[in-house]
Amino acid sequence: MEINFLIIITFLLSLIVWYIVTPLIEGTKEIPTQINQHELNRNKTVLLRQIKELEMDYHIGNVSEEDFNNTRNELKNEISTIITNIKNIS
């Protein structure tokens, strides 16, 4: 019983050490580019959604025309920057 238990514990420990240490031996130092790209795409989606919400607020009458144009331009500029960054990465 105790030997079985020791085997289980040793196996569990080895598995943990192997799982944690492997990337230190096999991995790369640099952050993979597609990982940054994914984050930028996520931000782009959120900004697009914000534009849609802004348009709705404008049509309901919750936002003045001046405010609508300014905010929409700000959001569009932000998206343009993100798209440029995505292009640069790829």
Binding site: Y19, I20, P23, G27, P32
Partner: peptide, 24 residues
């Protein structure tokens, strides 16, 4: 410790190892 090493050395391998340690 692994995340601290990543922040100090900017070596992505420490980030992945720290990530895995957190999973464990």
């Amino acid at each position: 410790l692994l995340f601290s090493l990543f922040l100090k050395k900017s070596d992505y391998r420490f980030f992945i190892a720290g990530w895995r340690a957190t999973v464990v």
